[in-house]
């Protein structure tokens, strides 16, 4: 509970109850309830985020990758490496390693899960909001963490396209 304030969703309920006369008990009950995952800038993660944090998907490296990127978040020093393999313009394999907070690890994992099997064009359209909503939300102060995964994905795709462009310049125009 954050400072004993009534959360947004409950406010309507409190106003209603206030008319009916036993609103004080509701405040008391809220105080005694099990601490919930509060909204707002606190370090709490939902079960899906915790699942991706404790069992991250697609951890590892690809030695013969088609695209690779290393990105960092200068504000917190966190860092991520991402490898992709592309077959028939689709991301056929994707692996990552992350040094970072739980938000960084969970969003990295989700980025790889979302990108796997997508075409390059589809993958390029993924945003940090997609990652956050696929995870069912993350705490406010952790939103920047999800950018790292997206940036790594875009950078790895750019690396792939650059390499491919160099190897096979005419294919670009097809």
């Amino acid at each position: 509970m954050q400072g004993g304030r009534v959360s947004g969703k409950n406010r309507g309920r409190f106003i209603m109850e206030k008319r009916t006369g036993n609103w004080q008990d509701l405040y008391r009950k809220e105080r005694e309830e099990e601490p919930k995952l509060p909204e707002g800038p606190i370090l709490f993660y939902n079960d899906l985020v915790i699942d991706h944090f404790t069992n991250p998907r697609n951890v590892g490296e690809i030695s013969d990758s088609d695209g690779y990127a290393l990105v960092g978040d200068p504000s917190c020093g966190d860092q991520m490496k991402l490898w992709i393999k592309v077959k028939k313009k689709k991301i056929s394999e994707i692996k990552f390693r992350s040094f970072g907070c739980p938000g960084a690890i969970a969003t990295s994992s989700m980025v790889t899960q979302l990108a796997l099997g997508k075409t390059i064009d589809e993958a390029k359209r993924l945003t940090d909001d997609d990652v956050i909503s696929a995870l069912g939300g993350i705490p406010e102060n952790k939103k920047h963490c999800s950018l790292m995964g997206i940036n790594a994905l875009l950078a790895a795709i750019a690396d792939y396209e650059e390499k491919r462009g160099r190897a096979n310049p005419r294919e670009e125009e097809l």
Partner: peptide
Amino acid sequence: QSIEGESILLHLDL
């Protein structure tokens, strides 16, 4: 070395 504190903390919490 090479791991981040908050991640250690969350694992400990779990």
